[in-house]
């Protein structure tokens, strides 16, 4: 039974077929269901057909949100202009901005984790509190967040911060602790000062692992971003999904979901390639 053999090497063709098989099966199952449901009920909106999806994608990409004030001259615009005024692009920009704020705020968290791991006073001061803070389920304190930060951008970014940064801080802390103490000692004997050791010996070593940890946390980050946008917002990818859910606009929801998946995949890929390029000596990624 070669399928269960560890030492087999499937050939190129087999690899290609096998790795795409589940995609093909999923698409076939979807198309079959869509066709079956439309035979029963031609107006079905739960499982849109390919044609409906296509129309949905076109509408989302090219047309502005119907509730918006119409632009002055929407007729004479080029395709690119129409795309840039379309709701998909505007929603993507709005969500991307919040995503980048959230991502940017993870870097101070990394520094805090590093300092906690290396400077005992920092560690003593923060560790217990952050261990506690880490266990707070961010979604459960939403009403408090709204009261404290309003319902505009700040509360959404804070939701991401509360949800994701404790994990990053603690992970960086643990990575810092795992650097062999001999290296720290060696650094000192070679004449390094405290900050040289912290940034040039320890941080430099753990950085690729920290980047990996951030990559793993992209999904929770998106999750909190979506939760925030679904609860109170005027634009954004999750805002649109929440609105369309109210009348089963699956022909746009499904393209949106796939679009988000694609974007997230690209961000992840970029970070992975960047990590490889910056740290060619690192072999775990």
């Amino acid at each position: 039974m070669s399928v269960l053999s560890i030492s087999v090497r499937p050939n190129r063709m087999t690899c290609w077929v096998l790795s795409w098989f589940l995609f093909a099966a999923g698409i076939c199952l979807y198309l079959y269901t869509a066709q079956k449901r439309h035979k029963e009920n031609p107006d079905d909106r739960v499982v849109p057909t390919l044609a409906q999806l296509g129309a949905g994608i076109y509408q989302a990409a090219m047309n502005p949100d119907a509730d918006e004030e119409p632009a002055a001259d929407s007729a004479g615009q080029s395709a690119l202009e129409r795309f840039r005024n379309g709701m998909l692009w505007k929603d993507t920009v709005a969500s991307a901005r919040r995503f980048l704020y959230g991502l940017a705020l993870l870097f101070p968290a990394v520094l805090l984790g590093l300092h906690m791991g290396i400077f005992p006073y920092f560690g003593v001061f923060f560790l217990r509190f952050i261990l506690f803070f880490d266990k707070i389920i961010a979604l459960s304190v939403l009403p408090i967040l709204f009261i404290a930060f309003g319902i505009d951008e700040l509360s959404k970014v804070m939701l991401i911060v509360i949800g994701v940064t404790p994990t990053i801080i603690l992970d960086t802390f643990n990575l810092t602790k795992s650097v062999p103490p001999e290296q720290v000692v060696k650094g000192f004997t070679l004449g390094a000062r405290d900050f040289d050791v912290a940034y040039r010996v320890v941080l430099k070593q753990i950085w690729p692992r920290v980047l990996n940890s951030i990559r793993l946390n992209l999904k929770p980050l998106m999750l909190f971003l979506f939760a925030g946008e679904m609860i109170a917002s005027t634009d954004g990818l999750a805002y649109r999904i929440a609105l369309l859910r109210r009348h089963m606009g699956m022909n746009i929801i499904i393209p949106y979901v796939l679009w988000v998946a694609l974007l997230l995949f690209l961000v992840d890929l970029t970070m992975r390639l960047l990590n490889k390029r910056l740290h060619p000596w690192f072999r775990e990624a």
Partner: peptide, 8 residues
């Protein structure tokens, strides 16, 4: 319009 969930 700010779409706000009825729970909050």
């Amino acid at each position: 319009l700010v779409n706000t969930s009825d729970s909050d």
